[in-house]
Simulated scan of single mutants.
Amino acid sequence: MAMVQLTHPVPARSFTEIWPYIVVAASGVVLLFMMFQPWVTASNWNGSASVNAFGRIVHSTRNMTIWTQSAPASARIDGVWAILATIAILVEVMAAIQAVLRRNELSGSVAAIAAIVVTLLVLIDVLNLDRSTPEIVASLGKGNDLGSQLALVVGAVRGTSAYPWPGKEVPLKTSGLTLWALASMLVAAGSAVGVLMRSWRGGLRAIVAVATRLV
């Protein structure tokens, strides 16, 4: 008795049409993970800090300001761009999933638009964090009164820090964007380019089909 084959392989053309949306959905999930990683690092006399895309600061202190009356102000970073980017990523992922499951051109267009918005918001967020780096560095300063000088002397005596004598070179760590921030921009831009190419081709085929019927 002949066996009836029940499985029907998906045509290669179908996978070719949907793979950009699969990449977009996966990139959105990866980007959400990357947004919780340190995007900016900074250091100064009173310790070091790292900041994620939402402006959350993780600070390690050396207690250089416990005796000072002029402690630097804490840095305040606006995380609204990251919140908007998160909403856009969720829309992008859901639209991409709908485009994969339903082969829906409208969902594909929504995914493409959302991918562009995500790229712009991520770029704005990175620029905002980079602009806030001096403020973060200043918040890790040591103060300018007698209490801060006493803290420097105690640190020098204990060997935990070098006293900044005039003319003495004291190395300080640099601050700036991390690889997480740069990689996030690349992931967002790459997924946007991929889905835009797919949507452009789909739109072009639709225009050609309509024009053929009219002719």
Rank of each mutant, 00 (worst) to 15 (best):
residue 23 V to E: 14
residue 47 G to S: 11
residue 2 A to S: 09
residue 54 F to L: 03
residue 60 S to D: 01
residue 39 W to D: 01
residue 54 F to M: 02
residue 21 Y to V: 04
residue 68 T to S: 13
residue 30 V to W: 11
residue 43 S to Q: 08
residue 2 A to V: 09
residue 44 N to F: 07
residue 47 G to Y: 12
residue 63 N to L: 14
residue 9 P to S: 02
residue 35 M to C: 02
residue 31 L to V: 05
residue 26 A to Q: 15
residue 47 G to D: 10
residue 50 S to Q: 14
residue 54 F to V: 06
residue 56 R to L: 06
residue 67 W to I: 01
residue 23 V to Q: 14
residue 6 L to S: 10
residue 58 V to E: 07
residue 30 V to L: 14
residue 7 T to Q: 12
residue 13 R to D: 13
residue 66 I to N: 12
residue 41 T to M: 04
residue 35 M to E: 03
residue 48 S to V: 03
residue 37 Q to S: 07
residue 50 S to A: 15
residue 31 L to R: 01
residue 15 F to Q: 12
residue 72 P to H: 08
residue 72 P to L: 10
residue 25 A to P: 04
residue 44 N to G: 07
residue 30 V to F: 08
residue 28 G to C: 10
residue 9 P to I: 06
residue 46 N to M: 09
residue 44 N to P: 02
residue 68 T to L: 06
residue 9 P to N: 05
residue 32 L to I: 07
residue 11 P to F: 09
residue 54 F to K: 06
residue 32 L to K: 14
residue 57 I to W: 00
residue 66 I to V: 15
residue 66 I to R: 15
residue 56 R to Y: 01
residue 44 N to H: 03
residue 28 G to D: 09
residue 4 V to E: 08
residue 8 H to A: 10
residue 19 W to L: 12
residue 10 V to Y: 12
residue 29 V to M: 12
residue 61 T to I: 04
residue 7 T to L: 13
residue 34 M to S: 09
residue 29 V to W: 12
residue 55 G to F: 08
residue 14 S to F: 02
residue 15 F to Y: 14
residue 39 W to T: 00
residue 7 T to W: 10
residue 50 S to C: 03
residue 37 Q to Y: 03
residue 44 N to S: 14
residue 44 N to A: 13
residue 1 M to Q: 08
residue 51 V to F: 04
residue 55 G to R: 12
residue 42 A to T: 00
residue 14 S to L: 02
residue 58 V to S: 09
residue 34 M to H: 08
residue 49 A to E: 03
residue 53 A to T: 01
residue 55 G to S: 11
residue 44 N to V: 05
residue 44 N to E: 07
residue 8 H to R: 05
residue 33 F to C: 05
residue 23 V to L: 12
residue 20 P to K: 11
residue 13 R to G: 15
residue 21 Y to G: 04
residue 36 F to S: 11
residue 8 H to V: 08
residue 12 A to I: 06
residue 22 I to Y: 13
residue 41 T to I: 07
residue 21 Y to W: 11
residue 61 T to K: 09
residue 45 W to N: 00
residue 63 N to H: 15
residue 51 V to M: 02
residue 25 A to E: 02
residue 14 S to K: 00
residue 66 I to Y: 14
residue 67 W to T: 06
residue 27 S to K: 01
residue 11 P to V: 08
residue 4 V to L: 10
residue 41 T to S: 06
residue 43 S to G: 05
residue 66 I to S: 13
residue 36 F to K: 11
residue 22 I to D: 12
residue 11 P to M: 10
residue 17 E to N: 15
residue 27 S to P: 00
residue 11 P to E: 15
residue 40 V to D: 02
residue 49 A to C: 06
residue 38 P to L: 05
residue 21 Y to H: 10
residue 72 P to C: 07
residue 56 R to G: 00
residue 68 T to V: 06
residue 70 S to V: 12
residue 2 A to R: 10
residue 29 V to P: 04
residue 36 F to P: 00
residue 3 M to H: 07
residue 53 A to S: 04
residue 54 F to S: 08
residue 10 V to S: 13
residue 22 I to G: 13
residue 32 L to S: 09
residue 25 A to N: 03
residue 69 Q to H: 08
residue 15 F to D: 07
residue 72 P to G: 05
residue 48 S to W: 04
residue 49 A to P: 01
residue 67 W to M: 11
residue 66 I to E: 14
residue 34 M to L: 14
residue 41 T to R: 05
residue 43 S to T: 02
